[in-house]
Simulated assay, not measured.
Amino acid sequence: MTGITVSAANRTFVCLPRWTVDVPVSVAELLPDGALRAYPDDRWNSWRNNRPSEPGSRFVCVQSVVMDPQDNLWVLDAAAPNMAGPVPGGPKLVRIDLRSNSVAQVIALGPAVAPQGSYLNDVRFDPDGGTAFITDSGARGAILVVDTATGAARRALDGHPSTQFEPEVVPKSDGRELRRPNGRAMQSAADGIAISAVGTQLYWQALTGRTLYRVPTAALRDASLPPDRLGVQVERIGQTHVADGLWLDAANRLYVTNPETSAIEVATAPGAPLVVLAQDPRMRWPDTFSQGPDGVLYVTASHIQDSPWFHPQARVTPSSIWRIGTGAISA
C-alpha cells in the first residue's frame, strides 16, 4: 500500500501498485471496519497481469491517489507493473467524482510524457485544481505539468539535475545498505512532491537523494519558457536525507518521511531544521502523506525493505497506515 488520501468528509482511499505480485484491488476505499472496497468499482480494478485488457480504462499499476482542493479524487496510474516500463496506453490521470462514485475524466499520458523507463510517482494540484504536477521517478526524472481542463501534458525539468537521483546515495535499512540480491542499489529520481498552500511554489526531491528543491509554479506553467530559463529558477532549499514522501500544511510546515529511521520529521518551513515528530520501528518505510480535515496526518508504511525485491523468499509485502496528530510544533 503506497498512496493514501482523505476527503473533506473523512472518506479514506488507498492504492496498491503491482510491484512484485499481481493484486486483486488497485484502488480501494478504506471502510470504517478496516475492509477494502474496490473503488470506484470492480471493472476499473479488473486488470490482471496475466490477462491484460483495455489499459486505458483499467487501473494497471496505481502509485498515488490524491484529493484536489475541490475534493475530487485523482488516481495516478504509472501503468508499469514491477516498474518494468509503462504498458502502452496505460499511463493516465483519472478523476473520480465522490458524489456519484464514478469516473468523471481520464487524462491519457502518452509516450511523449510517460516514455519507456518512466515511473509516474506522485501528484499535487494548484489551489484552483487547474494544473497537476507529477513527479517521474524513473530512469530520467522530470516534472509533468498537466492542464486538467484540456488534458494537455508536457515534461518539464526533464533530465535536469534537480529531478535526478544522486548516484552516491544508497538507502539504508536496519543499519545496512539496502541492496538487491545481485548487489544492485535502489535508484529513484524525483519522487516526493509538495505544493505551498497558496500554490506559488512546488517542492520535490529524489527518493535516493538528500537535496530539497523548489521552483515557482508560474514558471512550470509557462510552456513558452525554454528549459534553460526554467532550470535557472530551480532553487536548492536544503539538505535532507533519503525521503519518500513530502507534505506542506496550511501553515507552510514541511513534513518529510525518513524510511531509514522509521520516522516522520517536520520543519517549521521548507529549509528550516527537521525535527522528529513521530518514530516507531513498526513504521517501516513511511511512504506517502495525506492530511484529514481535522489536521491529522495519515501516512502509509509500505515496508519496501521487506519486499521480494530485497528478500526473494518473501511472498507478500506487509503495509500499514498510521494516523499522527500534529499538535503544537516548534523548531
Rank of each mutant, 00 (worst) to 15 (best):
R95D: 00
A331Q: 15
P167M: 12
A152E: 15
A9P: 07
P86A: 00
A132D: 04
T288S: 14
L212N: 02
D294V: 03
V14A: 11
F59R: 02
T163L: 07
A272I: 08
S64D: 14
V66R: 15
A156D: 05
E168I: 10
P17A: 10
P281T: 14
S118V: 08
Q233R: 15
D126I: 12
P318G: 06
Q233M: 12
G159N: 08
A149S: 15
V169C: 03
A223P: 10
D126F: 10
R315I: 13
I4W: 05
A251P: 09
Q291L: 08
A185V: 08
A142Q: 04
P88T: 02
V87I: 01
T217V: 11
A219E: 04
L16P: 08
V215H: 04
L109R: 12
R124Y: 11
W285T: 07
S319W: 13
W74Q: 08
V275F: 08
L202I: 13
I329Y: 01
V256H: 05
I237L: 06
A301F: 00
T12Q: 15
N82Y: 10
T240E: 06
A28D: 04
K172E: 14
A219Y: 06
W322T: 05
P40R: 01
F133L: 05
G151K: 01
T211G: 05
L98I: 04
A243K: 11
A194C: 10
D228A: 13
F125Q: 07
T257S: 01
N182D: 15
V145W: 07
A314T: 05
H303V: 01
G151Y: 03
P281G: 13
V123A: 05
D158P: 11
W285H: 10
G3S: 00
E177L: 10
S64I: 07
R236W: 05
A38M: 00
